[in-house]
Structure formats: structure tokens, C-alpha cells
Design a protein around this nucleic acid. Structure first.
Lengths: 254, 254
DNA sequence: ATTGACTCTAACGTTACGTCATAATTTATA
DNA sequence: TATAAATTATGACGTAACGTTAGAGTCAAT
């Protein structure tokens, strides 16, 4: 009762490609091959696969695993002990990094309080709960559920992917504005994009009222950091955008 | 006072290749280029490099760093918070793995006691302190000194590299024996290699007395795991080696 | 003008597979 | 049984962040 790749892949919870790879590097060579070249695995091969997956799970790389499985002489206790030392070192390093990140967060927040505008704070009062479940799902798959449950209790935020998407949207809005820039700040296309910008901010950060939006428009020309960033998309965009935002806000006020 | 690559590399503690790479992916583009194509960095570039290295240190990848530095709008607090959650998840996963490794060590040791031979135990009573400093040095470079000092207190063992070397030596000895196999177990070349085998074990594992060595020879044919492993080098090597070891021990006893 | 130190680009190597693309084979259906 | 559908095979490129040659041009000093 030999198994073919797909069966083995299902049982082991790995991909067929993985089995091909393990065959290629000589880590798990099927006990026989059909005339047509199909790989046939035995129960013994399955057991070996389990061992491989276990060792991989606890952090050994494939060549280390190969060495261990190829040499029964190999001293597993020593290998495990050495490996454990590495893991502990990694863990301690992570702990230090976490502390650093915490300090960094504090210093950014501290710095922001010293900054001039409440606008910056607004960025941080954003609704971070929204995508929480999605985020949790991702991390759970990567690091196991206990890890996530624990970390859920300690912190929460957007996924990095969420962030990438949000920033990409933002970029797109800017591009749309640049595309219609020659038509002037009052141009319908420009005004539409400006409306989208406000909506984008409302969707992802905080309730962007007309007043706040107007203030943001001022910031785009008053704060060098904003100006420099926006002008990267197009020279003079910051000023143009600021004007367009004022036009927009005036229209909304009516 | 512009700096050329080497200078920047020295100041930043990175390689020239790294700077080339950062230039390539648009992460750190030197402010100017000479007619000959030489990269010229300013003090401002140096500052940016420091930021990059900091963010890298705390675990962001280069594309994330690029996004953060390209967008002053980017909400660093949220990014850091999201990142922190990841780090915590990783840490917890590591802690679980460490526990698993500990359990595995115990179960191996427990299992060994139930095994038939004290010979296996001997493999574990080896002198593990020997290469400690070298090992510590490596890990220290990778994970920082505090981490190592902590882990030093908790465990110690051979480096993985040490292990690879030791196993490679072992393989070589086997090969030498296989090469002279046709001359019979008493052949001087074979006997020389057998002596090296004993020395190798003494050097790296435990004081391999003649009696123990003789017992090991028996094990090579009595224990299937050993037999199968040794025969992988050459069909019949286990039996041959066992005989050769007996010849060797008889000669030593004289 | 030559040497040595420095610089450049180009391109392969690393880890553990994912992801096509193309072709052959086996199994299931009509 | 002929054809379709499922499965399998072998390449070969892509990923992250550079390390490492390799071959060639540039700059400063002798």
C-alpha cells in the first residue's frame, strides 16, 4: 500500500512541492518509483516525514535535520541543548527589542505632545479596532493560537498589510489630483478626489470634520514635513492641494 | 564634505554592498553622483542611514522601512504597535518551542536509560565544556552580549558548526576504512583508521577505553540502528568494522 | 606613467519552498 | 473504450537582504 505524493502531502499537511524538494535534497527519498517516475512512499517514509516536520517545527533547518536523521550516531541531546541555547538567545533578543519598541512608542507620543498641532494626535486617536479580527487571523496562522490570544490581550492594531493598502489608496488619490492639476483647484475632478481624501481619512483614522479638514489643508503648507512629502508626488502639489481643500470646505459649508 | 561609500560604510558599520543595495532599491539614494559614477553621501544621508539601521534592528524589513521613511504621514505609533504585537507573538512561540525542546531532551534521556546499553549514555557524558568560549563568541555577535550572558547561565554545548566538523571527520575516517577494505581487517591502513576512530571518540565524546571500544564494535553489528547507518557508507562495512575493531583491541591488549 | 586603493556594474549564491509552464500518465466518466 | 479530468513529473524563475567573486574603470600618490 504505497502512497503517492498527494496522499502523503495531505497526511503530512505539507505541499507536494515540499515533498519534491525533500526528495531533491535527499532529505526524504521515496522508497520506490514507478516506471513512469511517480514517487511511491511507504509508512516508514511517513514516519520519517513526521520526524522531519517536528524537527523543523522546533527550529532546525533542513540540512541540520538531514545530518541528524542520517546519523543515528548523532548526539541528539547535545544538538537539542545547543539548539536550546540559540532559542533562548533569540528570545532574550526579542525581549530587548520589544522593550526598545515600547520606549520608541513612548518617545514618539511624547514628542508629539510637544509638537504644535492636535492634528497629529488625531492621527493616533484613530479607530484601530476595526480590522482586529482579520489581523488576529493572520498572526494566528503564523504563530499559533495561544500566541495570538496572549498578544491580543496586550495590544492591538492594524495589520501591516492593511497599512500598505491604506497608504497605496492614499497615493492613488494624490495621483488623481496630480492628473487634473492643470485644471485648477476648483475643477470637478480635483474636488472629487479631495472628497475622497477626506473620506479616506475618516474611514481609516478619525472622523475628519470639515473644520479639521480645513486645518489639515493649512498644515500641508505650514508644516515642512507635510509639504516636503506631498511635493514629492509633484512639485507644488502641497500648495495646490491646500487651495483645493479650502475650495472644498467652502463648498461644504454652504 | 561628501562621503564616498567606504567612509559611509565604516561610519554606519555596514558593508559597501549594503549601501549599493539600499541605493538599488531606492531606500537610501546618495544625494549626488560624480561624473565617474561614484556615490557621494551627505550628513543628511548618514542620518537617514542611522534611522534605517535602527528600524532594521527592531525587526522591520526594508520595504516597510522604505514606506515609513517615504511617508511622514505614516503613523509610526500604529506601525510600532502592530509590530510589537508580532514580536510578542514570536516571543511566545519561541517560549513554547523552548519548552518542547526541553521535554524532548528529557524524553530522549529517559528513553536512553531504558535502552540496553550504557554505551549510549556515554555519548551524553561527553565533555561539552570544551568549545564553550568559541560557541559563546558566535552567538554573541548574532544576538548581543546580554542575551549570551543570560543563556550561558542556563545551558552550554557544542556549536552547530562544531558538530558539523566532528561528523565530517567521522565520515572521513569511515571513508578511509572503506578505501582499504579489500585488504582485510588486519591491514595496517585499516588499523590506523580504526585507531583514529577511537581517538576521535575520545577527543569529542568520552574517554574511550579499549573495553568500551570493543563493546562499541559489538554494538555496530548488534544494534540495527548502528548497522544500518554504517552500512550506508558501504555494504558490509558494519561487520567489517566490528572485526577490525576487535583486531585493534586485541593488539592493544598485548 | 605606473601602482595601489577605491569604485563601478553585473550576476550568481543563499533558504525553503511557491508558483507557473509544459508534458506525460493515471483515473473517472460517458 | 474514447475522452475528459485529476494527478504526476521536471524544469525554472521568484522571494529577502545582502555576500561574494569577476572584470573594468577611477583617483591619489610615487
Amino acid at each position: 500500500m504505497p502512497y503517492k505524493v498527494k496522499k502523503v502531502a495531505e497526511i503530512g499537511g505539507v505541499s507536494v512541492r515540499t515533498l519534491h524538494h525533500y526528495d531533491q535534497i535527499g532529505l526524504l527519498i521515496p522508497e520506490s518509483i514507478t516506471p513512469a517516475g511517480y514517487r511511491l512512499y511507504t509508512d516508514h517514509d511517513l514516519e520519517k516525514l513526521q520526524q522531519i516536520l517536528f524537527l523543523k517545527e522546533i527550529g532546525f533547518n533542513l540540512s541540520e535535520i538531514k545530518t541528524m536523521l542520517d546519523n543515528p550516531d548523532f548526539n541528539r541531546v547535545q544538538a537539542m541543548t545547543a539548539h536550546k541555547a540559540l532559542l533562548i538567545a533569540k528570545k532574550l533578543r526579542l525581549e530587548n527589542i520589544i522593550k526598545t519598541v515600547e520606549k520608541t512608542i513612548e518617545s514618539i507620543q511624547g514628542g508629539m505632545e510637544m509638537e504644535k498641532s492636535a492634528m497629529f494626535d488625531a492621527f493616533d486617536m484613530s479607530a484601530i479596532e476595526e480590522h482586529k479580527e482579520k489581523y488576529a487571523e493572520e498572526v494566528k496562522q503564523k504563530y499559533g493560537k495561544e500566541a495570538v490570544e496572549e498578544s491580543e490581550r496586550k495590544t492591538s492594531a492594524y495589520t501591516k498589510k492593511d497599512w500598505a493598502r491604506i497608504m497605496a489608496n492614499w497615493e492613488q488619490i494624490y495621483k488623481n489630483i496630480v492628473a487634473a492639476m492643470d485644471n485648477g483647484p476648483s475643477d470637478p475632478q480635483v474636488q472629487k478626489a479631495v472628497g475622497e481624501l477626506r473620506q479616506h481619512i475618516t474611514d481609516h483614522f478619525y472622523n475628519c470634520t470639515v473644520d479639521i479638514f480645513r486645518g489639515l489643508g493649512n498644515l500641508y503648507v505650514d508644516d515642512d514635513r507635510f509639504t516636503a512629502n506631498i511635493d514629492k508626488h509633484k512639485e507644488g502639489l502641497a500648495i495646490f492641494l491646500s487651495e483645493a481643500m479650502h475650495v472644498y470646505c467652502d463648498n461644504q459649508a454652504k
